[in-house]
């Protein structure tokens, strides 16, 4: 669901729309008409909805924040869990999570990037191939994570014989984040002005060189946004990991060891361990902290990406 980055012509239109909207919201006759009952009632309702939604969302965030901050310390981040997670910390879980996400990104980034380049630069979107791939991506993006879990369990754990391991979990997640990666990377390539390609072609530069020297650097912001979005999705996933990377909360020794992800730790503490709530809150805060950091960077980058018409190489 990435936003379209506007072409120069659209940009003017967008500018016009927002100016217009401001004019509409400030004009005097509308102000007066907004006091009529037919206008007043929707206004009140919409403000009420916004207040309720904001209230609910802030309630959730502040609850996690208040209960979590009391528990978090350097020690919590650097020691192993003991007593089923009621005591100790989350060090091995952070390590397992990073390994799972690392495997996922290491596999999905090259594959996603390659597919996106091919789709954006070498295949037209209306061709049969383009259509098929787009539909597959839509389906893939919509498949419930638990179904990915089933698939991962049947394919990576059983058929390929990887068992419950960090590798199985990472590979399952790679299938999940692929659509996100491909989408945003494609956006990035689309946003590179057509002139760049024509100029380069006019100079007689080979297609490979154009790709490496010109398009890839220019599309970098889009690629980065996709990367971060994928990272966020991988980090927050739980259901797909339960039957692929497993529950074991020891420090993993290799990629073939089972490892517990942060989100599974939260689930386990909340559901299966009585008295695990304080540490579940703390783990949730750590996870949310990571995600806020990633999402913040993403939207900051995306904003810069939209604003800059000429890319910094």
């Amino acid at each position: 669901m990435s936003k379209n980055s506007p072409t120069p012509g659209q940009e003017d239109e967008l500018q016009l729309t927002s100016t217009l909207k401001r004019a509409v919201t400030r004009s005097l006759p509308l102000w007066i008409s907004s006091l009529q009952p037919a206008e007043l009632l929707p206004t009140v309702i919409l403000w009420a909805v916004a207040t309720v939604v904001t209230g609910a969302l802030l309630w959730l965030l502040s609850d996690v924040f208040w209960h979590g901050t009391g528990q978090i310390s350097w020690e919590f981040l650097t020691t192993s869990p003991s007593n089923a997670g009621r005591d100790g910390g989350i060090a091995p879980i952070v390590v397992s999570t990073s390994l799972i996400v690392g495997v996922c990104m290491a596999v999905s980034v090259p594959l996603g990037l390659g597919t996106a380049v091919l789709l954006a630069e070498f295949a037209s979107n209306s061709s049969g191939l383009g259509q098929l791939v787009r539909l597959s991506l839509d389906v893939l993006a919509g498949v419930p994570s638990i179904v990915f879990g089933l698939f991962g369990n049947a394919f990576f754990c059983k058929t390929l014989g990887l068992g419950f391991s960090i590798l199985s979990g990472g590979l399952t997640l790679a299938c999940m984040v692929l659509p996100i990666l491909i989408r945003s990377t494609q956006e990035g390539f689309r946003a590179v002005p057509e002139d760049y390609r024509r100029c380069a072609a006019a100079l007689g530069i080979s297609r490979t060189a154009i790709l490496w020297e010109l398009l890839l650097p220019a599309a970098m912001p889009g690629v980065t946004v996709g990367l971060l979005l994928g990272l966020g999705r991988a980090l927050s996933e739980t259901a797909a990991l339960i039957f692929t990377s497993g529950y074991v909360d020891r420090m993993p020794e290799s990629l073939f060891d089972s490892g517990r992800a942060l989100s599974i730790h939260i689930y386990d503490l909340a559901m299966n361990v009585s008295g695990g709530e304080p540490h579940a809150y703390a783990t949730a805060l750590v996870l949310v902290g990571f995600l806020v950091l990633i999402n913040g960077t993403t939207s900051w980058l995306a904003e810069r990406f939209r604003q800059s018409k000429i890319f910094v190489l």
Binding site: L57, W59, S236, A284
Partner: peptide, 20 residues
Amino acid sequence: LVELLAGIPSVVYGFWGLVV
């Protein structure tokens, strides 16, 4: 705020639902 909430993991929603 809405964008932030779109990125919160489901397990955190579930946990909040469970305890609150």
